[in-house]
Amino acid sequence: MNPIIDGVQKAFQLIFSGDPTFYGVVYRSLFFSGVATILAALWGTPIAMLIGLREFRGKTLVKSFFNTMIGMPTVALGLILYLVFSKAGPLGPLGLLYTPAAIMLGEAVLVTPLIISITTNAIEAVDPEMMNLARTLGASESQTSIAILKEAMNGVILGNIAGFNRAVAELGVALLVGGGILGATDVLTTDISLYTQRGDLGLAIAFAIILLLIVFGINLIIMLAKKAKILLTFGRSPQ
């Protein structure tokens, strides 16, 4: 049988099979990328606020550093993180290599520059006089920053979604620091790679279709949300 048709058939069989092994992989992919994105947002957003709201020497340099880091090959970052997490590495004693924690941390590092760059741009696009508006209405400096962040919310959300997209679709980090251990650290991308190497193209294609559906699904939601202006009114009040 044609391996492509076979793949497509297998994909739909898997989706509707309720096979726990398959759903485990999908769940891990979404969960690891989700946690990674949240981690990256947690430390990336404050950094973006500092870059976007303050004037300091070397600001352009810092911004172009993060812009460049967006293009970091995932395999190269995976290798660096492997060295960091490996027994002889600085975080070796934590024993994180080939655990879900390593994947989540690694993907968080991977998507941090993307989230910082998009969030910074969104913050810088807000009218700078907005800060004075918040201040004159009685906001403290931290409340002022939060007000600006709320005005930039569309861009912030976009940055986080882009981050999630990159995390869920990347292979290098997940493979090198996660090891693709079946049932433990394997995700959609590592399984695609594994089954392709094994010559089980049907399964590989099935996983690829699922991955594409996830990515398309997310983008579709963004588009629909934009149309419905949900994003525009996001954040009930600028506190």
């Binding site: 907005m130 009685g138 906001a139 954040g235 600028p238």
Partner: peptide, 30 residues
């Protein structure tokens, strides 16, 4: 001291939310 004075700018700026939340902003800060 900023709590004692309020400025209305020439270029009107609105927070991207409802009219109510805009007017309530300063009171919430207080």
């Amino acid at each position: 001291l900023r709590l004692q004075s309020a400025m209305v700018f020439q270029r009107t700026m609105m927070f991207s939310t409802s009219v109510y939340n805009n007017v309530a902003y300063g009171l919430r800060m207080r």
